[in-house]
Structure formats: C-alpha cells, structure tokens
Amino acid sequence: MTQLALVIDLNVCVGCHACVTNCKQWNTSGAAGALTDCNPYEAEPNGTFFNRVQTFEVGQYPKTETVHFPKSCLHCEDPACVPVCPTGASYKRKSDGIVLVDYDKCIGCKYCSWACPYGVREFDEQRKVMTKCTLCVDRIYDMSLPEDRRKPSCVLACPPGARLFGDVHDPESEVSVAIRERGGYTLMPEANTKPANHYLPRRKTTVTVRDEELYRSDNPHKIDGAPFDKNLPPTHEELN
C-alpha cells in the first residue's frame, strides 16, 4: 500500500516561506482553487493557505536555536479528521494515502478541523468549505509534466531542499531512507493519528582540534621563523 507524504528537514529549513506562497499560487489557480484572501489591502489581511511556516526560539541566550517549522496536513494514516466528517467529504485515498476534501460534498460544518490535532485545516471563508493540503494531487500524477517535476509545488520551490516527497511505505524510497537514517519523527505521537509526514531533526557538525594538531613539523615557521615568540615551539613529532 502506498502512503505518499512529505518529509521536512528542519536541519536545513531556513524559514524562507517559499513553500507557503508557491503552495498558494499552485493551488489557487488549480483544482483546489481559488483560495480566498480576506482584507487583501486592508487592516488584518488573512486568507486560506495550505501550508504555513512558523518560527520558534528554543533555549535561552546565547544557547538559542531558531527553528523554522513548516506545517501542512500530515496525511495521517489514522486521520482523526476523516471518520468524524458527516458527509464523507473528507476521505483518505486507498491508492496513495492522500487525505482530501471533496469541496462539492463539504457542508462546512468544521467538525473535521476540531478533530485534527494539528491545526492544518483551513476553512475558506468565501467558499465556505474546509480546505487543506492536497499533496498537489493535481500535479503529482500529471503525465504532461516531466517526471522530475511531478512533485508538489512546495517541494519544487524549496531552495535548500528541505522538503522531500515520496512513499513512506516503500522502504527504499528517498523519504523512508531519510526517516530511517536521520531520525525522522512525527508530530504529537500521543494523538495516535500516525501522521504520514515526518520531520527530520537538527544535526550538529563540530570540528574537534587536538592540541597536537596545532603545530606540525612542516610548519612554515620552520622557514619563516616564529613570529611572536623568539623560540619556535617544538612540534608534536619533535616531542615524541
């Protein structure tokens, strides 16, 4: 069984919001559109977006991490939003695990959004239907696109490549490998929705310099003379 999903690499997400607006432009002009904007040129502008990038500060100065955190529907394997929907407008596709809303069936009761723990469903105030990330279903199967462009709009846009897309049930897929090898995790596991989307944590690369590495026998001081002390320090090799 296929379960398509996004894997978001927090290790390289710079919080640029490219995924946010590119999602918006693809979906507003596409099958999921149009996504309304309220007060577009007035006070308190707001609107329907399927994907948002949030920012958190973790830790206290100077040991602070600034974490940019993109969030869209996680296409849960056990989606809380689906069984509660009274109309069947919310459904999970058997074929690929994508959770979708059928706008023609949705009555706009918002019940699904109450059930979802993640705050990723957005009620479109103009169309009066519930909306959310579609995993760009109208793009990823479009055979008129070259194969490497059959990916969600947000994934294609992301400059540092922080968004991976693929089948998390296929152990060989890029996303599964990334989850396995880089500690991929899901959000709020306690909600038992089994999100398909995963997040990859920050990693730190450090360089350790050992004292004996500092001064070696091929040191140019052997040619130039030691600059600040008259006496050349002995090299590690000489000491041994």
Partner: peptide, 12 residues
Amino acid sequence: QKAQGAMGGSYN
C-alpha cells in the same frame, strides 16, 4: 513561538 506564519490571523 515567535511567528505563526500569518500576522493577520487565520482560521486556526
């Protein structure tokens, strides 16, 4: 949290 991604608010 320092940013929600939308300063003018949203459905959520």
